[in-house]
């Protein structure tokens, strides 16, 4: 599969076939998640209506962590096997991950103030999530700071791989340290501990975020590939004229 997709033209064709379906299911899933989360899910017995913030906060945080893991794997594949789409995928994913990392930080803060009585604490979960955001920013900055694409790609891949150590820290911070942030209530070995009436809309929103990620990632990858083709063609033209 990965080898078949190594041909950018074949990848573009496949992306073009998938994109209309992806876009339609993203919009549908977002609409369902939004209506269910805001209108039909019951308020929490302790947190009241503020629990609705969870429907955007948790999927955004999951996506931020997933996206970074995706970038780390793509960077590894790019460095080791020189797969031609790997660094394109990692580069295209970074702004999406950064955006959702920011969303999870800000919505977490908006949830923290009424429930914890504070906008921010330097506990392990919040701090490691902030570090994740800085890693995203650093990764994006590195790509734009180095002009030569091959060197930029290698440097950014190394940063993505080194930074990947932070992903398990984010995930397990609530178990390893005593944090104000609550422990996991969905992704647990012994099953979710939250009620089905809240769990289902949360999962629908998580699916919507994931579909959105794939859709926007494919758009961005296509744009990047076309950009590279334009550069190659312009260089060819310049060489011909010279």
């Amino acid at each position: 599969m990965l080898t078949r997709l190594a041909n950018p033209t074949r990848f573009m064709r496949l992306a073009d076939r998938l994109l209309p379906w992806l876009l339609a299911s993203t919009v549908l899933a977002f609409a369902a998640g939004l209506v269910w989360g805001l209108g039909f899910a019951p308020p929490d017995y302790q947190q009241g209506e503020t629990v609705r913030i969870m429907f955007v906060h948790v999927p955004a945080a999951w996506l931020a962590m997933f996206c970074y893991s995706f970038m780390a794997v793509a960077s590894f594949v790019g460095l080791v096997w020189k797969h031609p789409l790997a660094d394109v995928a990692a580069k295209a994913a970074a702004p999406i991950g950064a955006g959702f990392c920011l969303v999870s930080l800000v919505t977490g803060s908006l949830w923290g103030e009424p429930m914890w009585g504070t906008w921010w604490v330097w506990d392990a979960r919040l701090t490691s999530m902030l570090v994740l955001f800085f890693l995203y920013v650093g990764y994006i900055a590195l790509w734009s700071a180095i002009e030569e694409p091959e060197r930029a790609s290698r440097a950014a891949a190394i940063l993505a791989l080194v930074g990947a150590v932070n992903v398990p820290i984010v995930k397990f911070s609530v178990d390893w340290w005593s944090t104000l942030h609550q422990p996991s209530s969905v992704m647990r070995l012994d099953g979710p501990t939250i009620d089905a009436s809240i769990l289902w809309p949360l999962l629908v929103n998580a699916v919507a975020f994931q579909l959105y990620f794939i859709t926007v990632l494919l758009w961005r990858m296509k744009a990047e590939l076309i950009g590279r083709r334009i550069r190659a063609l312009s260089l060819g033209l310049a060489a011909q004229e010279a």
Binding site: E49, T50, R52, V56, V103, T107, L110, W111, E113, P114
Partner: peptide, 19 residues
């Protein structure tokens, strides 16, 4: 939103602004 509108609506507005 049960008195929490100032926290809930900005959360959703920000999320969909980014999306």
């Amino acid at each position: 939103m049960g008195g929490y509108a100032a926290y809930i609506w900005p959360s959703f507005i920000l999320t969909f602004a980014v999306v």
